[in-house]
Design a protein around this nucleic acid. Structure first.
Length: 108
RNA sequence: CGAGAUGAUCGGGCGGUCGCGUGUUUUCACGAGGAAAGUCCGAGUACCGCAGAACAGAAUGCCGGCCAAUUACCGGUGAAGGCGACUUCAAGGAAAGUGCAACAGAAAUAUACCGCCCGAAUAAGGUAAGGGUGGAAAGGCGAGGUAAGAGCUCACCGCCCUUGCGGCAACGCGAGGGGCACAUGUAAACCCCAUUCGGUACAAGAUUGCGAAGAGAUAUAAGGUUGUUCGCCUCUCUUCCAGUAUCGCUCGAACUCAGCGGCAACGUUGAGUCAAGAUAGAUGACCGCCGAAUACAGAACUCGGCUUACAGAUCAUACUCGGUAA
RNA sequence: GCAGGAGUCGCCUAAUGGUAUGGCAUCAGCUUCCCAAGCUGACAUUUGCGGGUUCGAGCCCCGUCUCUUGCU
């Protein structure tokens, strides 16, 4: 689990990133990002992707992947899961997200 | 051996590495469920210038028990279903009134189509035994009786009234009488009777820290208390910005084990325990061993009940039915 | 988290407790040299699912599933 300081916590912040940020997408995830003073990231998994157990598990795996990739550059970003993400195992999620960050040139 | 019935239980365990939340400051401890779900009932708790009356509205409806509370729990009664163990049931009132009962049928709450009897008759009359329709056709069935028939009379059953015994009661088992009536069904149709119900739900609300603009001036205003009316109450109210921090937030009708009372729900006594409290929201990643380890599924103020989802495994019974053997 | 609403052919929709209606679409035929339009006919709904009340449920009652709206 990420420490609190690395998390995006306000509803307004999510809106800010969606409005101002650039985005890149893969089959399973979308990434919105905007330059900032510190690194923060938020995770978004829609109600439509499944029941609570499925959504929570997906969020935990996303956090585990990001936690493994630290440190990351100073951006505020939002990682959004798409339908296909529910079908992937941990290793596939990891590869997908790493590829996404490389294409966005955000690797530390 | 096969097919069932009922009542229960479990819902992976152990260890390692890297991380997260809370508490304590650490090398530590604890960290989702039996349904956390649906939100269908019932409460606690909080607030609403205190809780008054009438009407409207809603809910419930056999009896007893239990509970903080409930129509939802437990036990019984009755009815229905099943060969049976057993299961299911919103189960008051239809002579208070109103409505509805398609089609069929002569006729649907009132009647005579066919038939039967009487008769000279195709007239008039008697007749609900038989026919056919229907969910329902003048209590059922048999005998007597009769012109033919009919509770017209009688036996048995049903119904109604009275009454004895048993049971706290619902009700059950009998006895005597009525001679069957305003005569069917539907109240999960309106309704009647009885009982109950103030509103809003922790995003309730409390504390702290703050701003900006505007309006009314003692009443036929505005607002609150409930949907309406009455009654009662109030001096501040409205709009905009910000929406932060702390509390509420987990010790509670609590849980575990044992004894006692009770068929049970449950009660009671003793001992022990403190066991999530997040706030964009904490349980993940990797590995080893046992191994069938795979289901349904993730706390958001808290409890009691109900309902629904669920892999696999286990236990109990003077349980039931069938087959085989002795 | 809390409070409401809806579910009927492939799509849209009607129905007072009594055979579930109509339009579009689809299929076949007629018409045309061919297509479209037009005309005629056919097809398909056991009313989301499971129970109950009733002689009889799309309709009344209970449970459940799915979708959806509002508050925040």
């Amino acid at each position: 689990m990420l420490k609190r300081v690395y998390r995006l916590t306000k509803h307004g912040s999510f809106g800010f990133v969606y409005r101002k940020g650039e985005n890149k997408a893969s089959a399973a995830f979308s990434l919105f990002y905007v330059r900032s003073a510190t690194f923060r990231i938020g995770f978004s998994v829609s109600n439509k992707l499944g029941k609570a157990v499925v959504r929570n598990k997906l969020k935990r795996r996303m956090r585990a992947v990001i936690e493994d990739m630290l440190p990351l550059p100073n951006y505020q970003m939002v990682l959004v899961a798409k339908h296909k993400a529910t079908e992937l195992d941990y290793q596939a999620i990891k590869n997908d997200i790493r590829g996404l960050f490389q294409r966005a040139k955000l690797t530390g």
